Simulated scan of single mutants.
Amino acid sequence: MSDTVLAPAAAEPKKKTLRWGDGLSLRWRKHAGILGALALFLVLYLFYQMSHPRGFTGQILIQNANEVFALALVSMAQTVPVLMAGLDLSVGAVMTLVGCIASHLVDGSPTDIALGIVACIAAGATCGFVNGCVVVYGRIQPIIATLATSAIYMGLALILRPTPGGKVQEDLSWAVASDVHEFAATFGLFDDGEATWLQPFAWIPVPLVLLALIILVIWVPFTRSVMGRTVYAIGSSETAAYMSGLPINRAKLAAFTLAGLFAGLGGLFLALQTSSGNADIPQAGAYTLNSIAAVVIGGTSLLGGTGSAIGSMIGAMVLRTISFNFRIFDVAPLLQPLFEGLVLLAAVSIGGLKLLRLKNRLEIFR
């Protein structure tokens, strides 16, 4: 029997298995912006509550939630165009216009109130749709297009409310600016003897409940839809999204319409909170600028493609908590923009460091 030399079998490439720690690291990097903003908010808010002379009370929580809500909605509105690497400079104007409309329509019988609320929401969405049409069909950069439309919306608001005034339904105004118990009691949704199931949630401010509902009912379904995924794809690379056959124009229209809807909801709440309408130009500008700051603090990249409206909502909470602390310590109001600017600069710098590291890695392949 002859000796036979067998050739060694070719070594199979080792398959790299994804360990549990690797998956955790990926998830951490994906949500690092939101988690960082949440940590900053918790630190600032805990410091605020510890320093407050009255301590932690339900009334203070309700007041804080009321002050946060409008900015949170405007920041969520700003998030959608930023995800496409654009900016919407009209969100504050849309909020103001819808607030003025609400001061005319959200009053009277229950039917009148319901129709008025629908009209306000539709007005906000329509303003956003107009923005989208100007960007898509006019082929104008979003920052320029929305700068022009913001002036138009403010002009309409001034026509509706040359001076502050009007009113909204008082019970509704009180209910949405209170806690869950007061909301239910105002509209007779339960008798005292039948409300035991509500007691664990009775202390929660209604604005926080509304924010959670908006996230669950509007934002989450949008991000899981084709339009939502296309918005993220446009921000990452519009050319690649186009070559993939994604509906670019329809996604842009949907994105700006959603931004107008969010801003309109913020304006509707602001009218309910103040029980009036006010075409305040400085206030509209302040909300627009603060919305950009909240978006950046919340971890959304101004270059598009990454981020979330949830992070922007938390970023709005950070900004408002800074103002809460300034109010407690009676610091000069002129120092507040300085401190907010430093926080914004730090957030932008952290995002810039991430991009610099990515660029340095790509240099290896040149």
Rank of each mutant, 00 (worst) to 15 (best):
3 D>E: 11
3 D>S: 12
4 T>A: 12
6 L>Q: 11
7 A>S: 09
18 L>K: 14
18 L>N: 10
22 D>T: 10
25 S>N: 11
25 S>R: 15
28 W>K: 11
28 W>T: 06
31 H>C: 07
32 A>I: 13
33 G>T: 03
35 L>K: 06
35 L>N: 09
40 L>C: 08
41 F>Q: 07
44 L>M: 14
45 Y>A: 06
53 P>A: 02
55 G>W: 03
59 Q>C: 02
62 I>S: 11
68 V>G: 05
69 F>W: 05
69 F>L: 14
72 A>L: 09
73 L>S: 02
74 V>P: 08
77 A>T: 07
78 Q>D: 02
95 M>I: 00
95 M>L: 12
96 T>H: 03
97 L>E: 00
98 V>A: 00
98 V>F: 02
103 S>V: 08
105 L>T: 02
106 V>I: 15
108 G>R: 01
113 I>F: 12
118 V>E: 06
122 A>C: 08
123 A>M: 06
123 A>I: 02
124 G>N: 08
128 G>Y: 04
129 F>W: 14
132 G>P: 06
134 V>H: 10
134 V>Y: 13
137 Y>S: 05
139 R>S: 13
143 I>E: 09
143 I>C: 08
145 A>C: 07
152 I>P: 01
156 L>I: 15
157 A>Q: 01
163 T>S: 14
169 Q>D: 15
177 A>Q: 14
182 E>Q: 13
183 F>P: 01
183 F>V: 05
184 A>L: 13
191 D>T: 13
198 L>K: 00
198 L>A: 02
201 F>W: 13
203 W>H: 13
206 V>F: 06
212 A>L: 06
213 L>F: 09
215 I>L: 15
222 F>L: 07
224 R>D: 12
233 A>P: 02
233 A>M: 04
238 E>D: 09
238 E>W: 01
240 A>L: 04
248 I>H: 08
251 A>W: 00
252 K>H: 04
252 K>Y: 05
254 A>Y: 11
256 F>W: 05
258 L>F: 09
264 G>R: 05
265 L>I: 15
268 L>A: 05
277 G>F: 08
285 G>E: 10
289 L>W: 12
289 L>G: 06
304 G>M: 07
307 G>S: 07
308 S>C: 02
309 A>K: 04
310 I>W: 05
313 M>S: 09
313 M>P: 07
313 M>W: 04
316 A>C: 14
322 I>P: 03
325 N>T: 07
327 R>G: 12
329 F>S: 09
329 F>Q: 10
334 L>E: 15
335 L>C: 04
342 L>F: 11
344 L>R: 01
345 L>I: 13
352 G>I: 08
356 L>K: 15
359 K>Y: 09
359 K>S: 14
359 K>Q: 11
360 N>A: 14
363 E>G: 08
365 F>N: 03
